[in-house]
Design a protein around this nucleic acid. Structure first.
Lengths: 208, 208
DNA sequence: GATACTACCTACCGTTCGGTAAGTTAATGG
DNA sequence: CCATTAACTTACCGAACGGTAGGTAGTATC
C-alpha cells in the first residue's frame, strides 16, 4: 500500500496504526495511547511527528480526500460519455474501497460528521466540496451535451449520484450487501440513468 | 414536542439534554458530565434513571428508529401507487426532520456507525433492518404490480431509494442544500423513477 | 572537541472520564 | 408510629485521557 507517504519509518507506523483506530472507533473514541501501543512507539514520538491528536487525524483526512479526488479525475478521463464516466467512477471507487476501506471510512465519516464530533480546527469541508463539485461538473457538461434529462438540475443529479455512491460504500462498511465490483457499478448507473419506473415502450431495453 | 415520552420530569430533562449532546457530538465525545450539567441534575440522578451511558443512548436510539418506522408506515398507507408512497415517505421524513433533527441525526449516525464507535451491547441493527425492509416490501409489491422496471431487483431499488433519502437528510445536517419539503420530495422521487438520462420520445414528459 | 540538531526516551502532569457508596428527604402503606 | 420505597443528594473513586518536561543517544557541522 503506497497510500501513506512519509519520510520516516516511525511516522509511517504511527499513521498506519492511527488509520486503523480512527477508522474503527471514530475520532473521539480512538485514544492516542492505543495508537502508540499499536504502532510500538512512545507517545512523545507521536507528538514529535504530529502537533496533536487532531493534527494526526488531519493528515489522514487530507490523504483520504485527496486520494478520492485523484481517483475521480482518473476515472472520468477514461470515458467520453456520462454513462461511461459514472461507471468508471463507481468502479474505481469500489476497487479502491475493497483494498483501502479504512481510509475510505475516514473520508465518509468526515463527510457526514456532526459539528461537535471533530475538532473545529480541522479542515476538510473544502475538500469534500471539491470532490462533489467534480461530479457536479460532469453532470453540467452532460446536461449541455444533451445526454441528461433537462427537466432535472445538474446539482440535484450530482447529488443523487454522488449520494448514492457514498451510501453504497457506507452500507458496505456496515453489512456487505453485494460485491462492489464493475458489474454492480454498471447496474447502479443503469438504475440512476434509466429510472426505476417501468418504461412504456420496451423498444430498446438496453442491458445493465 | 411529544417525542420523548417519560414518566418523570427529571428523566425528561436528562433525555432532552442527552439528545442535544449525543446529536451534536456523537456518542463518545458527549460526556455524561456535560449532559447532567445541561439538564441541571446530578450525576447519580442520571444513573438512577439509566443503567449507564450506553443505556441512556439506547433509549434515544430506540425512540429514533421506532419513530421513523411509525412515520414510514403512516406515510405509505396514505397512497396506493409506489410514486405516491415514496413521495409521502420523503415528505413525512422531511417534515419530521425539520422539527426533530437531533433525533434524526441519532438514527442516521447509528445506521452508519463503525463497529468500535458505539458500545457493543447496543441493539439497533435489527431496527435499522426493519425500517429498510419496510421500503423493500413496498418495492417488491410495486414490482409485482408492474409499476417498476422488472430489469432491476427490488433490493437494489429499495437500497437506491432509501439510501438517497438518507443522503439527503445527512447532507442537510452538514450544509442545508435546499428546502426539504414536499416539492423537493416530488423531485427526488421523480428523478428516481424517471432516471437521469434523456428520454428518446419526449411525448409525455410528466411534471416533477 | 565543542555545538547543534534530529529523533526519540522515561516519567509524569492536571483534567476529565464513567461510575458509585452512602446518606437524605418526601411520600406511602401497614 | 414505624418501615419501606422512590427519588434523589454530596462526595468521592480509580482509570484513562491528551499532552509535556526534561533527559539522551546518534549524527552532522564547524
Amino acid at each position: 500500500m503506497a497510500a501513506i507517504v512519509s519520510h520516516s519509518k516511525t511516522r509511517q507506523h504511527i499513521l498506519r496504526a492511527a488509520l486503523r483506530h480512527f477508522a474503527n472507533s471514530g475520532y473521539a473514541a480512538a485514544s492516542v495511547q492505543q495508537i502508540v501501543d499499536d504502532a510500538r512507539v512512545s507517545k512523545p514520538a507521536l507528538y514529535y511527528h504530529f502537533k496533536d491528536k487532531a493534527g494526526l487525524f488531519q493528515a489522514l483526512v487530507s490523504e483520504a480526500h485527496d486520494k478520492e479526488f485523484e481517483l475521480l479525475c482518473g476515472a472520468a478521463a477514461r470515458s467520453k460519455t456520462i454513462r461511461g464516466q459514472l461507471v468508471e467512477i463507481l468502479a474505481v471507487l469500489f476497487d479502491y474501497f475493497r483494498e483501502n476501506r479504512e481510509l475510505m471510512r475516514i473520508a465518509l465519516a468526515t463527510m457526514f460528521a456532526s459539528p461537535g464530533e471533530l475538532p473545529k480546527k480541522l479542515r476538510y469541508l473544502d475538500r469534500c466540496e471539491r470532490n462533489f463539485e467534480f461530479i457536479h461538473t460532469l453532470m453540467k457538461r452532460a446536461l449541455q451535451n444533451g445526454e441528461l434529462d433537462g427537466r432535472f438540475g445538474s446539482r440535484e443529479m450530482a447529488f443523487g449520484f454522488y449520494g448514492q455512491a457514498n451510501v453504497h460504500l457506507m452500507a458496505h462498511l456496515v453489512t456487505p450487501t453485494c460485491r462492489l465490483d464493475r458489474r454492480t457499478a454498471n447496474r447502479i448507473v443503469g438504475l440512476f440513468l434509466a429510472g426505476a419506473a417501468r418504461k412504456r415502450n420496451a423498444g430498446s431495453p438496453g442491458k445493465f
